[in-house]
Every structure is written in structure tokens, then in C-alpha cells.
Design a protein around this nucleic acid. Sequence first.
DNA 1: TGTTGTGAAATTGTTCACAGCC
DNA 2: GGCTGTGAACAATTTCACAACA
Lengths: 225, 225
Amino acid sequence: MPGRTPEPGEDPREIPDATIVRLPLYHRALMALDRAGESTVSSEQLASIAGVNAAKVRKDLSYFGSFGTRGVGYDVPQLLSEVRAHLGIQRSRNCIVVGAGHLGTALLTFAGFADRGFSVVAAVDVDPDRVGSRIGGIEVGHQDDLDRLVRENDVVIALLSTPPEAAQQVADDLVAAGVRSILNFAPTLIEAPEEVVVRNVDLASELEILAFHEGRRDNEVAPAS
Amino acid sequence: MPGRTPEPGEDPREIPDATIVRLPLYHRALMALDRAGESTVSSEQLASIAGVNAAKVRKDLSYFGSFGTRGVGYDVPQLLSEVRAHLGIQRSRNCIVVGAGHLGTALLTFAGFADRGFSVVAAVDVDPDRVGSRIGGIEVGHQDDLDRLVRENDVVIALLSTPPEAAQQVADDLVAAGVRSILNFAPTLIEAPEEVVVRNVDLASELEILAFHEGRRDNEVAPAS
DNA sequence: TGTTGTGAAATTGTTCACAGCC
DNA sequence: GGCTGTGAACAATTTCACAACA
């Protein structure tokens, strides 16, 4: 999936994927430090709050340039601002929740998005019992209004929490409406044009990874008959 | 680089982390194939359903031994059974949900766990309004009963869906009760003894990773002043 | 002195390409 | 002829270790 098109003259992909996935950890850590009134932080401290090691922190941050002060550390507000800029969340991004079941409801009422730079502004479902209801201050629209809601609300990210059978169709509709990023909670592969970024969160897969380690502890692996 | 540690009586062959996280994808794909009545599958087909490439599939599966037939492919039921054995989910594993808010409710009612090898058997919360209620057929117990519920129900995995402020204390309690694996949804680092495996699902972080790519498209990155 | 920034080394992961087998 | 299994080449990522410097 990574490693694409090193075209000369165009964006010379320079920040490693592995670094990108750690950026949110630094963001979270820096917000906590900032809230606590800390004005500087060393790579060692930041690493311990983020749960990584100090060399990685320094290497990761170095891709943006040199913001630290040798002998002192990093300026917390400045680094926070820098990380936000690189994450593209200096201004809030609008999101839509597609599928307002239990998971969709959790997403619509989740308190943790706002200060991380996201605003859930719309929701749709196909179930007539849900359409028209309000969840977390958002009125649930009908699936057929998806295109309009996306366009009217300047939605750029979709949270896809439908049953797996509906996921591909919904994804197609989202792409047609102009959504460029999809966070897919349905346990199925969804296809999208390559300019649309899809990330998958499969809860059962996460449990399976934990179970793998459980299994290692229990016993020797006992292969199937 | 030897790559092999032929220690007698010890862990026979180390399976790479990168392979482990793909195992659930193969599991999901094989279940779909099995349900569809397919009896064999090539690495190419399996790859396309799982969303990876064929070389990776073959390499990953080769860590378990040789189960394919050259010129034919893999036997679906056999490979499914093999993958399940390695994932440690030949028998179902019991889980507890800690924190029965909207996210906890989604986890308690999620239909997708059962056929992936997991059974949510208990839930706890601290809110008196929630304790005693039934969600998804499970009675929500009080946080103080956590230890008892874990032991009585042979719980090995916890789904931690409390607010971040409570997460560390809950994790400590879970470890004390004997839980060996934690799936942490709270956006904070939790510390646990190294024999306890913790995986983190931070929804806001996932959105930030999407936003990073959005930002790349919008414009040049505009660093903070 | 204490801490960053970074080349270089070590490690881990991916892809290639083809021999071996059905 | 088709497809697996796998060494070997390649690529990405992590870690080391230390010079630079406020």
C-alpha cells in the first residue's frame, strides 16, 4: 500500500508512513503537556507519554525540520502547532457518520473528536425508525440525502458504520459525493479510487491479534487435524 | 543473519509481527470463501479478497508450514482451520466490556464477534443508572464486581471503553483480576506488566491520519508561524 | 551540561523470480 | 500449465552512537 510514485517535480513523498501513524500520538501527548502548562519537553519525556522511544521521536520530528533546542528540548506550543499543521487540522474538518446503529451512535456522541480537530456534522441511515431522530445533537438524515448533506456541509471524511453488506455501495456513494477519506468500520474490504484514502478499523481483527498472543501463552500451537 | 532459532523445547518459529496483523484478514477472507462453498483458493484470489498481494500471502502462510498444493492452491476448510489454530480461536474466548457508555453498548451489541471466535460475557460500569440494566443480553455489573466477574466467567480479554481519566485504574484492576489482554479504546497510554498485551484503538488518531492525507492534497503544508 | 539532529548500522518487512511439484 | 514455497535482493524502519551546540 505505501511507497507510491516518486515523480520528479511533484510531491516527493518524504514523511515515512510509520512516522505519519505516530503523529497523532505526539499530538495527544503535546495537548496533555500544553494543558498541564508545560512550556518545554524533551524527546525522552515526550516519548514516555506517547509510548514510544526517544530516538524515534527525534527522528520523526526531524522530518519537519529542526524545532528543538539542544540542551533544552522542544517548545510545547510551537511543536503542537507544527504537528497540527502537518496533520492538516489547523482548522476543523467536517465528518459524516453513515449508519446510525449502536456504533454510529457512539461515533455521533463521542466527546473526543472536537479537540482533535474533527466535527461530526451529519449522519444518515436507511432505517425509517432512525431517520429523523436526533443523536448527539445531529439529526439523522436518510441515506438518499447523503450526497446533499456531504455537499452542503463541506464534509471531507466519512465514518462508515453500516453492516458489511452495505459498505461497498455506501462507499461508492460517498466517493460520488466527493468524500476523499473513509474510515471503514465494516469488516469487509471496500474498493475505492486510489485518490480516496480508506482506513479500516476491524474490531474483531484487533481481538484476534490479542488472541494470537493468548494462544502463544496457553500452550504449544496445536495445528488442525 | 540466521533467521532461525532451532531451540529444542522452545518457541519453534517466530512469526513476524507484520504477518500476525494480517492473519485476521486471511481469516475473514477464508470465512467468506468457506461460506460461499469454495473448496480451494489460490494465493492470488485470497490476496485480492484480503486486500494484500499474492507474494505476501504465500510468504505469510509459509510460516505455518506448507499447506498449499502446487498447481492448485490452498484447501479452504483446511487453511481456515489452520489459521484459526494459530490465532488461538479454535475455542471461543471470553471478553468483558468495561465502561457501558455508547461505545461500550456498541461493543456489547456488536454482531461480528461471535463467528470470529469471541464471546462477550460480562460488562461493568460505575454509573448507577447503567448498573443492573441489560445491554445485548448482558447484565451490566458494578465496577466493584469486576474481579469476581472476570474469574467466574473465565474472561481473558477486556475491552476498555471508559473515559481516559479512568483507564489506568481500570487497567490495573483488570491485570489484578488476571486479564492477559486489553483492547484499549481510551485515548491515553495505559501501562501494564509486559506479559499483558495491550492494543490501542484511538478513533481520533485514525481520523488524524486521514486528515494528514487530506492536507497533502489541499495545498502545500503551511508550517506554523 | 544536557539534549537535539543525524549519518550509519542493524533489524524488520516486502517483493522478485524461479525451482519444484502437481 | 499453473501455482506454491522460498532464497535472495531490495526497501523501509528502527536503533545506535556521537558530533554539534544552546
